[in-house]
Computed example of a mutant assay.
Amino acid sequence: MSVSISKGLVRVGSSLARFVKSPNFSAFDGTKPKIAVIHFTYGGSALSSAQWFTRADVESPVSAHVVIDRDGTIIQCVSFEDRAWHAGKSSWRNRHGKHLSGLNNHSFGIELANWGPLVKTVSGWKSHSGVPIADPVLAEHKNGNPSGAGGDIGWEPYPEAQVNAAAALVRALASTYGVDEIVGHDDIAPTRKWDPGPAFDMAAFRIAVFGGTRGADTDNVLTVSVDEGLNLRNGPGQHFASQTLLPAGTRLRPEQRQGRWLYVTVLKENGSPLSSGWVHEAYVA
């Protein structure tokens, strides 16, 4: 598939991609985005998600630059010259945004039509809306499963045509805008998001886009966000003893989740590990 970008618009071969315009966008503040963020839609067709992005009358209007269907069809919703509202509260390395804008100013949002986590029934794995999914990927999410329960659950697989189209698009973003990092929504918002999830082979995708050995771009951290500091506890609950009080701004790497509690590694200024324990997600960002 030949994908190119000109003046913010996606062209597949010699034709412009279908454009279902979202009103939910704003201008970049002068920052040149260098990150591609991969999402799943948690829904059915790419068109249904693109049409959802046309809604400005919801409590929290959202959008993405493109939605890619399971057959590789690309639908554009926001020009790449504009900022889509896809990231929410998020951070990556030392880049972040104000309030709920997160990494929107630093990134391009790419949605893949996919149901995400599945529900196990007596007749097999199904989406949250009851759509049967054959041959799901069975895995536990690296951030903990959405339900909070441990162990492997089902995830809808990503078809090869869809992944190839996404890789061609991100290569075009790298060529046109200098994108040099690819992350999942679950990388930049690990305490609240699970997309694109364990069914998406991020390491292989990075290599498909950049070549070489670019399989790992993982350097996400959280920080203690309360002035009074935060207790690092021996277990996931307030009844567990506190090891120490972490000062505001302490950098933490999330390792696993249990409910709203996160098992984290405390990082020194040079990024090396100092200690580990549990913190509540409400006090980190």
Rank of each mutant, 00 (worst) to 15 (best):
N220A: 13
A172E: 06
D186F: 04
Q258W: 08
I188V: 15
V183M: 08
G237K: 01
R253G: 00
R214V: 00
D227I: 12
D195E: 14
N234V: 12
F200D: 04
T213Y: 15
G229Q: 06
A168M: 13
S225T: 13
S175D: 09
V209H: 03
A168F: 07
A216I: 12
N231Q: 09
F240C: 07
A241V: 08
T218D: 14
P198F: 02
D227F: 13
N231D: 13
G235S: 13
P196Y: 05
L245A: 08
Y177F: 14
R171H: 10
L246I: 05
G178H: 08
P198Y: 03
R233L: 08
A199Y: 01
A203Q: 10
D219A: 14
I188R: 01
Q258K: 12
D180Q: 09
A216W: 13
L169P: 09
G215F: 04
S225D: 15
D227S: 15
A172Q: 07
A203G: 11
R206C: 06
R214D: 11
L222W: 05
Q238M: 13
I182F: 06
D195Q: 11
T223S: 09
G249H: 12
G197F: 03
R171N: 08
F210L: 10
T244F: 12
T213W: 15
G215I: 04
D201Q: 11
P254C: 05
E255H: 02
V183P: 02
G178F: 08
H185P: 00
G259W: 14
A216E: 14
E228Y: 07
A174C: 12
S242Y: 04
L222H: 04
D187H: 08
R206T: 03
P236D: 11
V221F: 10
L246S: 05
E228K: 14
L222I: 07
L173I: 09
M202Y: 02
G229R: 08
Y177G: 04
V226S: 07
A204T: 09
L252D: 05
T223D: 03
R214Q: 14
I188A: 04
H239G: 02
V179P: 02
D217T: 10
E181P: 01
T218Y: 15
W194E: 10
A241H: 11
Q256M: 10
D187W: 03
T250D: 06
G212A: 15
F210M: 11
T176R: 11
R171C: 11
V183A: 12
L230S: 01
